[in-house]
């Protein structure tokens, strides 16, 4: 007995030692910053001015002022529109592209696939630049419309939310397409054939057979997209700067404005905390939705 005990101990020791580097990295780059963020969100820390040097604990003051600020509610509204617009667009487009590509030949797939992937593999800031060039008043979209004698539309100023949502859909659709592609590949063709033999129409097969089969993938994909979309900053920042006015000021933009542009770091971190909570809440909801399937 003592022998096995000590060897087990040795094994555990070895394992813990091997885990140390990743644990250290996690602590230094993740845990500590989060704890600091929580702490700073209760202080009046500023980027410059007297409060940069001598900041102190202010309790819930930051949270009170944020929730009494109409801009907070505007930014929550903007975040939700941006989130659900992007989710709907990315998931529906991604699914149908994957669905229609499923039984096509390899040449077709290898041409269409990379075209959609192109938007995904590009860094966010490059996507922003491309979309800015496309939707700018002097940009490609208006040049194209002018072929049909349609007067140029200042997209980024007249329809700012629409343009950033479209840009994010373009950027993110490939991810949904890939997840749905692998999920659809796993749906056995036998079931589909059986349904066809039983006289089900193509739409009935889709709704009654295929969708229930990939339910879990839909939930996972939606969760990942939600977390990804909640954090989008540079795309919106580079395209509209959160404007005009507050039209596209999502929570990350609001956080940046309060924390870094208005120099009120304490308030910025408080908004960051709220964003963190919203993200956590969404994950819990999705995880809860996922669980019964597994049981």
């Amino acid at each position: 007995m003592p022998h096995t005990k000590s060897s087990r101990f040795a094994r555990e020791l070895r394992q813990s030692v091997l885990l140390t580097p990743s644990l250290l990295l996690l602590v230094v780059f993740f845990i500590v910053p989060i704890i600091l963020t929580v702490y700073y969100s209760f202080t009046n820390l500023a980027l410059t001015g007297a409060n940069a040097k001598n900041f102190h604990f202010v309790g819930l003051y930051n949270y009170q002022t944020i929730f009494s600020d109409p801009k907070m509610w505007q930014s929550i509204k903007a975040t939700l529109i941006f989130l659900f617009g992007s989710l709907a667009g990315q998931s529906i487009l991604g699914f149908f592209i994957a669905y229609f590509m499923k039984k096509k030949n390899r040449v077709f797939r290898s041409v269409v696939g990379p075209c959609i992937l192109a938007g995904w593999v590009m860094p966010e800031i490059v996507v922003a630049l491309c979309c800015f060039a496309f939707y700018d008043t002097m940009g490609t979209a208006n040049a194209f419309l002018s072929l049909f004698h349609i007067a140029p539309i200042p997209w980024l100023y007249k329809h700012p939310m629409l343009t950033v949502v479209l840009a994010n859909i373009w950027h993110g659709t490939a991810f949904s397409m890939l997840t749905y592609q692998s999920a659809l590949d796993n749906v056995s063709e036998d079931i589909e054939e059986a349904a066809l033999v039983d006289g089900a129409s193509r739409r009935q097969t889709l709704v009654k057979i295929i969708l229930p089969c990939i339910k879990e993938t839909i939930a996972t994909n939606t969760m990942l997209n939600t977390l990804q979309t909640l954090g989008v900053f540079s795309l919106i920042w580079a395209m509209t700067g959160g404007g005009p006015g507050t039209a596209t000021m999502t929570m990350p933009i609001y956080m940046y404005n309060q924390g870094l542009k208005n120099y009120q770091l304490g308030q910025g971190t408080a908004i960051g905390m709220i964003l963190l909570l919203i993200g956590a809440l969404c994950s819990i909801i999705y995880m809860y939705l996922l669980k019964p399937e597994k049981a």
Binding site: G49, D69, P70, G243, G245, T246, Y263
Partner: peptide, 30 residues
Amino acid sequence: PSVSTCIQTMVESVVSGTSIQDAIDQYGKD
């Protein structure tokens, strides 16, 4: 410098269509 950023927000919101009173109210809060 911090107040100045509030001025910029107020001015931009007015030229983008916010009413003058709403913009001033927001400025007061900020």
